[in-house]
Design a protein around this nucleic acid. Structure first.
Length: 154
DNA sequence: GCCAACGTTGGC
DNA sequence: GCCAACGTTGGC
């Protein structure tokens, strides 16, 4: 089993939205970056666990634990002309964009702020992709040791 | 294949 | 709202 970190803007789709969804589950659609697409399509497996990370908000940080309940499949929003994430270059016969289904396992007892994670960037969380300068990837793999350490901060 | 222009991300 | 970082696009 692998661990991941997935970014989302809480004003658009955050832990509250996932908690309110049927079966607390939802497709993770709208990813339009090739590196992240490759992870969604090729690497994420049912049963993997992921942190839900809130970005572009007052306190960016890790807000919840999710599990992957359906591995990569084509992101149909790319085919919908009226959809915000429509991409004319994605052909249904040869889809360009993929998504997984996630399910909320539980919200964290508190949001663990990015600022707090940074304090450990040189030691316990050394090498964590999220903390690398200039990183913008919306989906990043997480080492098991980092996952476990972050949970001790909760 | 280079690289400038442009768009997006996301912390601050 | 600013702006640095970085991915993508497209002319050459």
């Amino acid at each position: 089993m692998r661990y991941w970190l997935m970014k989302t803007e809480p004003a658009t789709f955050g832990v509250e939205h996932l908690a309110a969804a049927p079966r607390r589950s939802s497709p993770w659609d709208g990813v339009r970056n090739f590196q992240a697409r490759n992870m969604l399509r090729d690497e994420m497996q049912r049963g993997d666990e992921a942190f839900l990370y809130h970005s572009s908000c007052a306190v960016p940080g890790i807000a919840a634990i999710m599990r992957i309940v359906k591995p990569g499949y084509p992101d149909a929003t790319a085919f919908d002309r009226r959809h915000h994430h429509y991409d004319a270059d994605s052909d249904p016969k040869n889809p360009r964009w993929f998504m997984v289904d996630v399910q909320l396992k539980r919200p964290l007892a508190r949001v663990i702020p990015l600022e707090e994670l940074r304090a450990f960037a040189a030691r316990e969380l050394k090498g964590m992709v999220l903390l690398r300068p200039g990183n913008r990837l919306s989906i990043t793999p997480l080492e098991a040791a980092h996952w476990k350490f972050i949970l001790t901060l909760e």
